[in-house]
Design a protein around this nucleic acid. Sequence first.
DNA 1: ATAATTGCATACGCTGCGTATGTCAACTAT
DNA 2: ATAGTTGACATACGCAGCGTATGCAATTAT
Lengths: 198, 198
Amino acid sequence: MAHKPRKEMIAETRAKLVSAARQAFGTAGYAEASMDDFTAAAGLTRGALYHHFGDKKGLFEAVIAEIDAEMNERLCAVSAKATNRWQGFVDESVAYIEMALEPEIQRIMLRDGPAVLGDPSQWPNANACISSMTRSLTILKEEGRVGDIDPEAAARLVSGASLYAAQWIANADDPAATSKKAVKAFKTLLNGLLAEKG
Amino acid sequence: MAHKPRKEMIAETRAKLVSAARQAFGTAGYAEASMDDFTAAAGLTRGALYHHFGDKKGLFEAVIAEIDAEMNERLCAVSAKATNRWQGFVDESVAYIEMALEPEIQRIMLRDGPAVLGDPSQWPNANACISSMTRSLTILKEEGRVGDIDPEAAARLVSGASLYAAQWIANADDPAATSKKAVKAFKTLLNGLLAEKG
DNA sequence: ATAATTGCATACGCTGCGTATGTCAACTAT
DNA sequence: ATAGTTGACATACGCAGCGTATGCAATTAT
């Protein structure tokens, strides 16, 4: 009776591994995170890891997919709250900068992720953020709110600027002041996308 | 007679190590580059590496400093050619995107660099590019050509957007077409910095 | 009940890094 | 000139971490 169904046990094991790995990757970093260590912290061994995820990179991908989904959800919530679509886009972009200040996101998504898995735009399970940004821009373009630019290109430029800015802010002597400067410059830059000066 | 002066031999050894490492880091990547392998390729051993650079990261920093210097030189040449300062800034930024398409720069400066050494804005010997961009923007601001934004913040946003765009372009199915879209969107974005719509 | 499958652990070998040590050539001083 | 010193690099060793091969026990299928 005390037996849980099999599927549940397996899902639990996977979740434990992802969680422990996320913790380790987020703090120590991918290269420095020892598989022996964090599997043990989850009460398991590397055997379980190789069984479920193939290798260290496989588990890393799972962690990334999880975080990406969370980020996307948060960003959607932000843009949904805005009064108009352009404002929603701006808010979303700024929120993106702010999320990039979180150490876990910075380390896993922005630093180790690209180094280990390559170009983020090629990640299979993690592009929800970019896609939703692109969608927003597509509509804004149709509405004539923004000029004649490729929405995906703009979305990528914006997210690139954001994450770079975030790194800079996070490591600055005075993050709060730096953040102000960055956000202001960022909004100014975004105005370039508008069809008419706002 | 056949003896070269000591200093020269040492400089040669260092140069050989940097060159071999640059080659290995640029193709295999930092983590996959075996110190035994690429020191051997230079006709040396790891002993020489540890003697001169302390560790693998130390050598990596030297490689980065070298590449950064080259990039800066190229960027200066571009902006020097322009007819006016704003145009020079735009050209420089676009040139930055184009440079980021080179596999070596992409791999070493944009991917492995940040992952291994952390935030690029904190690198000791490698910020020549950003500094010169910041200088250009400072002057443009004084001239009233661009609006009231923090020059360094803008420079970082721009370079972030550039390198992210470059990665995207380099991995696209049709790099040429993607590049066109990206550069157009990029120039549009830059217009946001202008005090008046150009 | 027995066979087959599967989830995970254990055991082994290999690679690659860092350090400690050794060695020989080149500069220095008398 | 020669003895001593420094410094440039090689060699040797130990250790951690990854991947694979193997083992085992519990579930599922027949």
